[in-house]
Design a protein around this nucleic acid. Structure first.
Length: 173
DNA sequence: ACCCCGATCGTA
DNA sequence: ACGATCGGGGTT
C-alpha cells in the first residue's frame, strides 16, 4: 500500500458501533483492485436491536457477528444481492456496520449507491464472509475529515426509531 | 418437507 | 407499487 496511509484494524472496529459507523465515513476500502470511499453506513447493534440479524439469537448465518471485531459479515438478501458489514464491539456482543454506499473515481454513482449494488460492482459475495478486514478490505484512513447527517435506517420495518444511518453531507470542511 | 420472510433493486 | 429470486430459519 501507499506510505502515509493507516489501515484500520481490530482496535478501530472494537469500539461502540455508532462511533465506528460515524468514523467509517470518508474512509477508503480497497477490493479487487478498486478503491472506494465509504459515503453511507448503518449500525446494527446487539440482540436488543429488533432490526439486527442477531435479534433472535445466534444462528449459523449471524455467527460472525458474535465474534471479535474486525471481521466481515457478508450475507445474501432477496436471493440476488449481497450486503457487506464490518463486525464491531467486543467478542460476544453482536453488532456490525452495514456499508450502504461508496464512491469510486470515474464510476457512475448509480452503480454504487446501495448495499447490494456496491457488492455486485466490487465482486463481494458470501465467500467473503468472515474475512479479516485488514487483509481483505484494506480499510484506510486517508486523513480526510467529513461531516455527516444522521437519519433513521432504511429498508427495515422495525427499529426505525433510531437515527443509526450516517451519510456524508460534505466531503471536506 | 413446507412455509414465510427479507439490512434490495429495477421497472412501472 | 410490485415482482424477481432463493437462502435462512422456524415449524410440521
Amino acid at each position: 500500500m501507499q506510505q502515509g496511509i493507516h489501515l484500520l484494524g481490530s482496535d478501530f472496529f472494537e469500539q461502540k458501533t455508532l462511533k465506528v459507523a460515524r468514523n467509517l465515513l470518508g474512509k477508503q476500502l480497497s477490493f479487487n483492485g478498486m478503491k472506494a470511499i465509504i459515503t453511507e453506513v448503518e449500525a446494527y447493534i446487539g440482540e436488543e436491536d429488533p432490526a439486527c440479524h442477531a435479534a433472535k439469537g445466534k444462528t449459523k448465518r449471524n455467527l460472525i457477528m458474535f465474534g471479535p471485531a474486525g471481521y466481515s459479515y457478508v450475507y445474501m438478501i432477496y436471493g440476488m444481492y449481497h450486503c457487506l458489514n464490518f463486525v464491531t464491539e467486543k467478542e460476544g456482543f453482536p453488532a456490525a456496520v452495514l456499508i450502504r454506499s461508496v464512491v469510486i473515481k470515474g464510476v457512475q454513482s448509480s452503480l454504487l449507491n446501495g448495499p447490494g449494488k456496491l457488492c455486485r460492482y466490487l465482486g463481494i459475495t458470501r465467500q467473503h464472509n468472515a474475512m479479516d478486514i485488514i487483509s481483505t478490505f484494506f480499510v484506510a484512513d486517508l486523513g480526510q475529515k467529513v461531516s455527516c447527517i444522521k437519519t433513521p435506517r432504511i429498508g427495515i420495518k422495525v427499529g426505525t426509531d433510531k437515527l443509526w444511518r450516517f451519510v456524508i453531507s460534505s466531503p471536506e470542511n
